[in-house]
């Protein structure tokens, strides 16, 4: 038995020990609070400031470009504002309808009586992830476009396609979220001997609020992104400018469209996050 503790020759070299050794963690008191406050400021103002800077940068950059007649014609305020309005309208409509359909259905499908079908629906939702958004959108659009009974032009087929595309993910998220809530509720409620209705009203519904809010955010972000493809189906939106820039080989147009879409998506995500945070019951 060797009792010497000096390092023998060994196969691996090891990092100097001092860093590991006298490692002192940071002070957790006053400095920590200050840092937390600074962090929350960064969180609340960081994104809008960043987006404002990006827009300013875009504006200044396009301003320095010598725009030819095509570019000048595409990049009018009227044009861009109109597309932005279209983009937002498509996003809001499709979000509204998908929530109207998917959330109640999600709640219904997680009730005890229907619960055994839940894995099937969640499985379908998972499998749906394998279908590419572009293909699904196009197929849905084709379906509605070729139904003689339905209006084939205007925003209707586009909104329906967007709703159809985001339906499964939202349904799946709602169900998974509620399932987690239910598991918790089942223990707590039963433990206190509450009646079923009382459990639903005083525990389950408040606990479901964050699930629904998360659904709102997911749906908004999903739809603001997919609405960028609405131009393919005559639905307009800012995707139009991107595509025009690409087809006409006009970089300022391409960049303007792309940046506007990106800024809009990040802004929607940021606002939805704020709403989610404000409306979530404290302590959850």
């Amino acid at each position: 038995m060797s009792t010497s503790l000096t390092p023998p020759d060994s196969s691996d070299r090891v990092v100097p020990t001092d860093a590991e050794r006298r490692q002192t963690a940071r002070d957790e008191d006053a400095a920590g609070v200050r840092r937390a406050r600074r962090a929350s400021l960064v969180r609340y103002l960081g994104m809008p400031l960043f987006l404002a800077l990006v827009l300013l940068g875009l504006f200044l950059w396009v301003g320095t470009q010598e725009l030819d007649s095509i570019e000048a014609r595409t990049l009018t305020a009227e044009n861009l504002l109109g597309q932005t309005r279209q983009h937002i309208t498509l996003t809001l409509y499709s979000t509204f309808f998908v929530l109207l359909l998917a959330v109640p259905l999600g709640i219904l499908a997680t009730r005890p009586r229907l619960r055994r079908y839940a894995p099937v629906i969640i499985g379908l939702g998972n499998a749906g992830q394998a279908i590419p958004s572009l293909g699904l959108l196009a197929l849905l659009f084709y379906l509605f476009r070729t139904q003689p009974a339905l209006p084939s032009t205007g925003p209707f087929p586009v909104v329906v396609s967007l709703v159809g595309y985001s339906f499964l993910p939202i349904l799946r998220n709602t169900m998974v979220g509620l399932d987690q809530v239910d598991r918790f509720v089942l223990e707590a409620g039963k433990g206190m001997g509450m009646s079923n209705r009382k459990v639903l009203r005083s525990i389950e519904l408040p606990l479901a609020v964050p699930v629904v809010l998360a659904g709102v955010r997911t749906a908004l972000v999903l739809n603001v992104g997919t609405a960028a493809l609405a131009f393919l189906f005559g639905g307009g939106g800012l995707g139009e400018t991107i595509f025009a820039g690409f087809q006409l080989r006009r970089t300022p147009v391409l960049i303007t469209g792309a940046i506007l879409v990106a800024v809009l998506a990040l802004l929607v995500d940021y606002l939805a996050g704020l709403i989610e945070e404000k409306l979530t019951p404290k302590g959850l």
Binding site: T6, S10, R21
Partner: peptide, 17 residues
């Protein structure tokens, strides 16, 4: 340990013993 000051030696080699 066993007459040797191990306070500052490489901890990984120390631990193998």
């Amino acid at each position: 340990i066993d007459g040797e000051d191990v306070t500052d030696i490489d901890p990984n080699h120390l631990r193998r013993r």
